[in-house]
Nucleic acid binder design. Structure first.
Lengths: 202, 202
DNA sequence: ACATTTCATTCAAGTCTCTTGACAAAAATT
DNA sequence: AATTTTTGTCAAGAGACTTGAATGAAATGT
């Protein structure tokens, strides 16, 4: 017997769950700017498999899924978190998930503290960027939208377009995402930036 | 002579303008979901040329540019419209305009520190809300969109829908703007909240 | 006028990303 | 234990974009 889609025992197709997981994985990957190959290499599996998983044509084994979320800097729970209304409003300091950008080639010494948990339907993205001493975001990225941020602590250098700014705690910035931008920690110790932007992938 | 980038007469590279135009063209194309080939077919030119233009490795002739914007449904002017970037990117602590809400009957003991200056075309609104001891925002407002905030200092009570939260520095929140919401300072001294929301109008 | 340079533009070949189908091996089901 | 499912790999392929060499037309210099 040949099938194009997963189903349960009694013949009813259930692309729903597999597809949903796949979609989330894809979004998580894309948000981090990874290609299938890049993720496959990090997670030690084949591109092919990832492609199938993301398209709901296969569902990862638990060990596999574990490797994936690890590389993506998420946790398995997140992938299944229900997206409906009853999501949290308040997220306490110290209880928010951290994802490290280091292994992902999107920046060195940078970790993101998720303020808005992953879930489709949000109009905003929001993270606290923690930048270790000498940490630096990877090459400029351009996408559609707008960004706004507030320096909570530390001293950072922000490059937007061809302008360079040195920012201290309390300073804020706004710019269109289509301007190439990146930043680096130029002070002593860790720097933190509260960062909000309109959705990266659209 | 071989070059990778455009330059002017005296040898200084000027990727800036060409690159900016390229970026806008790419954005316009992608926004419309066109591939290089699709656009090339419509505009009767080669994919190759488009690729180079978008990457700032060539700059279109005027007739060419005209064909492109025509297919893309824009006008040449838009391609060169100065990035609203000229309105400032960084806003230093202590230099930002303050607006008191009291005379507006929008709250007592509250003043807003504008991070994003008012100007149409912004996708985000952003202010720091300074709330004096015992200050309180006026009755719940509802609009369309989403809000996210971060408590910089002080202790506040946030009421969203029928839920009440007590927030301390470092805590963050997110909610849909259509939920009725307001807040009050419940600590000693002034409280400050970094607050971002999608524009209330539209 | 003529030679030279510059640069938009094309064609063809190459690269990169992702998808698909056939198969092996492991796991689950009967 | 035998059979069916299904993860996972490999290799081939399709699509989107990039790059380099070649062309030709305009601008520049002599």
């Amino acid at each position: 017997m040949k099938r194009n889609d997963l189903n349960d025992g009694d013949g009813t197709a259930l692309p729903t769950n597999a597809a949903r997981l796949g979609t989330r994985l894809r979004l998580a990957r894309q948000t981090r700017g990874l290609t299938l190959k890049a993720l496959a290499d990090e997670a030690h599996c084949s591109e092919s498999l990832l492609s199938k998983i993301e398209n709901g044509k296969a569902s990862p084994s638990l060990p596999m899924l574990h490797k994936l979320v690890k590389v993506l800097g998420t946790n398995i729970g997140w992938m299944f978190e229900e997206a409906d209304g009853e999501e949290g409003i308040v997220f306490r300091a110290g209880t928010r998930p951290l994802i490290s950008l280091d292994p992902l080639r999107r920046g060195e010494g940078i970790s993101l503290e998720r303020i808005i948990p992953y879930s489709p339907g949000h109009l905003l993205q929001c993270n606290i960027h923690h930048v270790e001493e000498d940490g630096e975001s990877a090459g400029p990225i351009e996408h559609v939208g707008e960004e706004v941020g507030y320096v909570i602590a530390g001293e950072i250098e922000l490059i937007v377009g061809d302008e360079v700014f040195r920012l201290n705690p309390g300073d804020a910035f706004v710019f269109k995402s289509e301007l190439p931008h990146h930043y680096r920690n130029v002070g002593k110790g860790r720097a933190s930036i509260f960062w909000v932007n309109t959705p990266p992938t659209f």
